[in-house]
Computed example of a mutant assay.
Amino acid sequence: MKRLSLFLLVVLCISTVSSCVILSPKKYKALLAKQDSLNVGWSDAQSKNESLEQRINRLKKDTAALNGQIAELRGQFNEMDANYTKLRSNSSSEINKLSGDLKKREQRLKEVEEILRKRDEATNQLKAKLQEALLGFTKNGLTVEIKNGKVYVSLTDKLLFPSGSIIIDEKGKQALTQLAAVLKQQPEINIAVEGHTDSQKITNLGQIKDNWDLSVLRSTSVVRFLTEEQKVESVRMTATGKGEFQPLGPNTTAESRSKNRRIEIVLSPKLDELYDLIKQ
Rank of each mutant, 00 (worst) to 15 (best):
A180Y: 05
N251H: 09
L271T: 06
V17T: 01
K2Q: 13
L98V: 11
V193W: 09
L226I: 02
V193S: 08
S268M: 06
S15L: 06
E255M: 05
T197S: 12
N204K: 11
S199K: 09
L8M: 13
V266P: 00
G195T: 08
Q185R: 14
I14F: 08
N49H: 14
Y275L: 09
L109V: 07
L66G: 01
A71E: 12
T177L: 11
L179H: 04
L87Q: 09
T197V: 01
R224F: 12
G241I: 06
A128W: 04
A45K: 11
E233C: 02
L109P: 00
D81V: 00
T177K: 15
R261T: 06
K171L: 10
L126C: 06
E255V: 10
Q69Y: 05
K209N: 11
S19H: 04
A181H: 09
Q35I: 01
E255R: 10
Q200N: 09
N124P: 00
N124V: 05
L142Q: 07
N211S: 03
V21T: 08
K147P: 01
Q186C: 08
E188N: 15
L183D: 03
G241Y: 11
L4R: 09
E113D: 12
I265W: 09
V266L: 09
I146K: 02
N67E: 12
L32C: 05
M1C: 08
L205E: 12
E170L: 03
Q174F: 07
K29E: 10
Q246L: 09
L267H: 11
V144L: 05
P25Y: 05
A30Y: 11
G41K: 15
S24E: 14
D120K: 11
N90M: 08
E255L: 08
K104A: 13
S234Q: 14
L217R: 14
L6R: 13
A133L: 01
K118E: 10
T203G: 10
E132K: 14
S99A: 08
K48S: 10
K270S: 15
T16N: 01
I202W: 06
L87G: 03
L217S: 07
V151L: 04
K150Q: 15
S15N: 02
Q230L: 09
K26G: 03
S99Y: 08
S18G: 11
K242Y: 12
V216L: 14
E170V: 02
R117N: 14
E273I: 02
E244G: 00
T85M: 07
S268I: 04
T197N: 09
S5D: 07
Q207A: 13
V151W: 01
S47A: 13
E50D: 08
K158W: 02
V182N: 06
A64W: 05
D272V: 01
E106I: 12
K147W: 00
E264R: 15
D62E: 15
K201E: 04
N260S: 12
V17C: 00
Q35H: 14
M80F: 05
N49M: 13
I189K: 03
D44W: 04
F7V: 00
I263P: 04
S221W: 06
N39Y: 05
N148C: 00
Q200F: 03
Q107M: 10
A181S: 15
K270C: 07
F137L: 01
V10W: 07
G241V: 05
I167R: 05
I278Y: 13
